[in-house]
Simulated scan of single mutants.
Amino acid sequence: MAENSNLKEFTKGMIKENPTLVTLLGMCPTLAVTTMAENGLGMGIATTFVLVCSNAVVSLLKNVIPKAVRLPCFIVIIASFVTLIEFLMKGYVPALYDSLGLFLSLITVNCIILGRAEAFASKNKLIPSILDGLGMGIGFTLALFLMGSFREILGTGKWMGIDLHIPDPMTIFIMPAGGFFVLGCIIAVVNKLANRKPPQQIGCEGCPCADSCTGCANEHKEEKTV
């Protein structure tokens, strides 16, 4: 039973509750850094690292941190891991560090990370919190890598530094407008595959139980009286 629960926490962030394609969180880095697949992959991995580590620490300290200052404490924890990943990337992958630029530091205020810390890690045990962060991070990484791949291929004719010899690439795809277009198309495809439909309000006329509903009968009587 526990294994099924842990598996559910791990997989929910990939499609069902994907932070980028379903809940539409973290739009700023999603649109800004996905001009190349490599940038999207790098940002996704960095965010996943911070998500997993911050979720783990928040879960361990959830009974120690006072409720009155929990959000500032969460931000300090997240900022510590962001600083660590910045040092690591600057030392080992300086080219990627320069490409991501300011958006790497802005992971600190990424609503995905703070949201998972507040909504999940602060209320659950260590293992589920780690799996939640890992699943959400992988979902975020896949979304950024997919967007970056489409934009790089269509906008530059290359992918991960490989020249695909595409004639006349459309540079609009590496511009903000192209980012919004690709994001919208991917979200539409995900919703189609998940068979999601927009919420609909059903009135008395469309309700199958309208004939036996006393509330509807009373409403109809009031309408006739008026």
Rank of each mutant, 00 (worst) to 15 (best):
I85Q: 06
Y97E: 09
R116L: 00
S122K: 02
L142H: 09
L142P: 08
P167E: 00
L84N: 14
P94S: 13
L106A: 14
L142F: 05
L131Y: 15
A79L: 11
I130L: 11
T108P: 02
M160P: 12
T83Y: 05
F120T: 10
E86D: 10
L164H: 15
I162C: 04
Y92K: 04
I112C: 10
T141Q: 04
A95T: 10
L71M: 14
V82I: 08
G91K: 05
F81T: 07
G135P: 03
G139Q: 01
D132I: 06
S105D: 08
A117C: 15
M160C: 10
I138H: 05
E86M: 10
L100F: 08
F145P: 02
I107Q: 13
R151N: 02
I112K: 08
F145A: 13
V93Q: 01
M160N: 15
V93L: 15
A117S: 09
Y92H: 03
S129V: 09
I77V: 13
K123N: 02
R116D: 00
G148I: 04
Y92G: 02
V109S: 15
L106Y: 11
L88H: 07
L154R: 13
S99M: 08
L104Q: 13
D132V: 10
L154A: 06
I127G: 01
W159D: 00
S105Q: 01
K125S: 14
L100V: 11
L126S: 08
S99C: 02
T141S: 06
A95S: 07
I78N: 11
I75E: 10
N124M: 14
L134M: 13
F81V: 09
D163H: 02
T108I: 15
I166V: 14
S122F: 07
L100T: 14
I130D: 12
L144W: 00
I153W: 10
F103Q: 12
A143P: 07
